[in-house]
């Protein structure tokens, strides 16, 4: 590679984008082929989900797969009229927003304490966080449920908030990203008279936008799709989330697969929209925020 590279391709972050002339088109074509094949493989189950939502129950599973729908648009009407989809969407939305907000806020706040300040007991506490990720939830689910019941939390939306807002995942993720921010930035800020809280607010937060964006999205998706948590804690039909609600289409011996798939399609759409709208934040790096290390 020669010096000319810098002139021709300003975006040098990845090897695939580099290389002038013929090489660009070669890599590009290869990239497109790879991406297209991947996209088909990746979207096939979603496509099948959409197809199934347009079928009658007994045509969802057949040998061989039928790639032609029955055009049963009625499922999309039924799910709103015959079930409590509106309530489920509302609850899911409330939980996702509140939990994501708390998780991102307290997680990124705590991460600063773990990554940028030295104090005794810090590493022990952090290990405690990490260690709990390693315990399978179904093992301590019952003790936790009894505890929540004693705190009068179970069967409320608060139970889900309490359960998921204070996870170790967010703390760990943000801590790792803070560590990529050069220490000199904080030092300079301290000399400028900023408090630690100010550094977190004015330096760290803006610099970790891609990390915050991915944490937000991942938390949102996890809460949105969580099944076991609401299953144990949300018993009142007024509190049900989409995932729990869709399970009411499964009886002891029968299941309304077409309606389940209809609900699943509907539940994916908001996330797809959030992702499509928010994705510019995932690829907005230090370089583009104008602050240089």
């Amino acid at each position: 590679m020669s010096l000319t590279d810098t002139r021709v391709t300003p975006d040098l972050r990845t090897p695939a984008a580099a290389g002038p002339g013929r090489r660009i088109s070669f890599w590009r074509v290869l990239g497109y082929i790879a991406l297209t094949v991947a996209a088909i493989g990746v979207l096939a189950p979603f496509f099948w989900m959409v197809l199934s939502s347009l079928k009658t129950n007994n045509n969802v599973f057949t040998v061989p797969i039928r790639w032609v729908p029955d055009w049963q648009f009625g499922n999309y009407v039924d799910i709103w009229t015959k079930s409590d989809m509106l309530t489920w969407v509302k609850n899911t939305l409330i939980l996702s927003v509140v939990i994501t907000f708390l998780q991102v806020l307290t997680g990124s706040f705590a991460a600063y304490g773990f990554s940028r300040l030295r104090w005794p007991g810090r590493d022990v506490l952090f290990l405690a966080y990490l260690a709990t990720i390693a315990v399978p939830w179904q093992a301590y689910m019952i003790p936790q449920f009894i505890l929540f019941s004693k705190l009068n939390l179970s069967n409320t939306l608060w139970a889900m908030v309490a359960l998921q807002a204070f996870g170790a995942f967010g703390v760990f993720l943000m801590k790792q990203f803070y560590e990529t921010v050069p220490e000199e930035l904080s030092e300079a800020a301290r000399l400028d008279g900023l408090s630690e809280y100010g550094i977190w607010r004015r330096i760290m937060l803006p610099l970790s936008i891609p990390a915050i964006a991915s944490l937000t999205l991942l938390t949102f998706v996890n809460v949105w799709n969580d099944y076991l948590g609401p299953l144990i804690y949300l018993r009142d039909p007024d509190l049900w989330t989409i995932q729990i609600g869709l399970k009411t289409f499964i009886g002891q011996y029968n299941a309304q697969y077409a309606l389940i798939m209809t609900g699943s399609v509907l539940s994916v759409l908001p996330i797809a929209i959030v992702f499509a709208l928010g994705q510019k934040y995932f690829v907005q790096g230090i370089a583009t925020t104008g602050i240089k290390g």
Partner: peptide, 16 residues
């Protein structure tokens, strides 16, 4: 209760 996870939910409820 949930048809598929009835016993899981019931176990939790009885224990609490």
């Amino acid at each position: 209760y949930d048809a598929a996870n009835y016993d899981t939910q019931m176990t939790a409820d009885l224990s609490a």
